[in-house]
Write a protein that binds this DNA or RNA. Structure first.
Lengths: 200, 200
DNA sequence: AAACTCGGTTTCCGATAGTGAACAAGTCAT
DNA sequence: ATGACTTGTTCACTATCGGAAACCGAGTTT
């Protein structure tokens, strides 16, 4: 047993063979037909279906091409279109997950809900001078931001510094470098909501 | 037996290595860090990124687990890096587009920016009793909501009414029927951010 | 400038995925 | 029944994937 140094990274089952067989049978295809369509050998297909081997990614591509299915379809195991309807995740004021840094103190909101498309968090802006940032903050996706308390100066990569105060809001492409500094007596507080950077 | 000549099954590119590298660099991870997270060897990662090998599906799983990304994100092809970089849309307090109704008074924020993935708006909750709503409010997608001023009672289709006050926030599936009423002296004010209901 | 670090690539080799051929188990037709 | 055909599994072999370690700049440090 080779040790993979510390970290776990367990590979759960995710029985893709089973799923593949389902699809094949649902379409009343034989292994031979699937072989024709995908270019993979009958034997290989058999082994994949019985979870005897873990297919190469190119093999997976041949499968999704040849069978005209898409990944989600191949992965969604028992087809649970049940939907996570009616989920919700409450965060009382101040009770989010705190992540302090020298310049910002982030408080992640609604962090119990795993699969979500937006990431909301509240930030106390500790920074007082632009120079405190070693480099731009940037991340894929879009960001909406509203100042809840105090006044800030928003520095961005492409624009002049922009003064914002309580109630002002801004929507921007968060791949553009940005950085906030407080300019009021007290530290400013802002609410941000970011998109997850995936699906375009 | 339809197609009898699919033998070749052209292996189209779908440069996953490239995409993976993008993701890694975007997060400023080194190969070593990714190795720790995924349990894959540095060398293996390097080869995958340079399209020297086609990773096993288990390897792909380790990647998506370890990096907390999902398949679509990994596959979404060459990334539209062009992007409308550096867009932004400022809304000064109170200067959004107002849409009054008997129960709510919505103020759309950042409405100059057309193509965006989130819709932020501020709402003054005029309703005082649940009975004022003829039916549930519901819409595709997800919604994040934070109470800015006052106290409200949030009625939902599947849960007990939930009292929320200034600073509290909640994230929920907005397909679940919902309705807000003010229970404080003054009308309550809430900030909402919805996802656009398209991309699943 | 040698000595060290750090991030990435390349090398070598054991482990395993993918293939064609052989095999076992039906099914069908005579 | 017997032989011809089909379908899925197993075998033997080769191609290639995955990992440890060596290797290579590019900085830093001494």
């Amino acid at each position: 047993m080779r040790i993979a140094s510390g970290r776990k990274a367990f590979v759960e089952p995710l029985r893709l063979g089973e799923r593949l067989k389902e699809i094949r049978l649902a379409n009343q295809w034989t292994l031979e037909e699937v072989s024709q369509r995908t270019g993979l050998a009958r034997s290989t297909l058999s082994k994949i279906e019985n979870d005897q081997i873990s297919p190469t990614f190119t093999a997976v591509q041949k499968l999704i091409n040849g069978l005209a299915i898409d990944l989600p379809q191949l992965l969604s195991p028992p087809k649970p279109q049940t939907q996570t309807l009616g989920r919700r995740d409450l965060t009382r004021s101040g009770e989010g997950q705190h992540h302090p840094t020298p310049t910002y103190e982030h408080e992640l909101l609604s962090c119990q809900l795993a699969q979500k498309r937006m990431i909301p968090f509240k930030t106390i802006v500790r920074a007082r001078h632009f120079e405190e940032f070693s480099e731009w903050v940037r991340h894929d996706g879009e960001e909406f931001l509203m100042v809840l308390e105090g006044k800030i100066l928003m520095y961005t990569e492409y624009y002049e510094p922009l003064p914002l105060e309580s109630g002002d809001s801004i929507y921007f492409d968060s791949a553009m470098g940005h950085a906030l500094v407080s300019v009021s007596e007290e530290d400013a507080v802002v609410l941000s909501v970011c998109t997850r950077g995936d699906t375009v």
